[in-house]
Amino acid sequence: MSHKHALSINGEGLLNVLISDVGVSLPFSGKPEEPEKLEVKTYKGIWDTGATGSVITKKVADELGLVPTGQTDVHTASGTESKNTYLVNIYLPMNVSFQVVKVTEAVLNGNIEMLIGMDIITSGDFTLTHCEGRTKMNFGIPSVKNYDYVDSINVNNKSKEKQRMCECGRGKKYVYCCGRGKK
């Protein structure tokens, strides 16, 4: 069985943005005999389900000495433009790395230097809950389970329906009394 890895972000309250550390390096050292000697730099990255692919800023490209290997048409609310793409390795703080990922260069606000897009997020299970007013994000690799709130709620509601007492006053449960045969 392959190892499972997980990462969680726990807010003390409700979070309006999900940020974690992300490591980035060149995809290849240029020296086949020393592939392990890649310099990894760590940046703040936003987990963004609104991004089809992952993004780095020009600062990351400059600091790592990345050279563009392609272009892509970038569509945003402000229009469409061709932007450079780079090949990088991405390291998540859960002992998981993604080799040779194509990332797009774009401008991000604040001290955020990376977006973790759906190309990464779809490689595992991603959940976002806000129980008791606290945001909790979980990301696990590999994907192991489909979470279906609608199914869970239907099962729970059916179970409660079975336990409901009939209102006719005979002291029987509804499904064995006036509700017999009804769906």
């Binding site: 963004d48 991004a51 048409d73 970038v74 945003t76 402000s78 797009t104 977006l115």
Partner: peptide, 11 residues
Amino acid sequence: YSQTFYSRVSL
């Protein structure tokens, strides 16, 4: 050869 960003990204 297309990327779509529904938030965050500026050109």
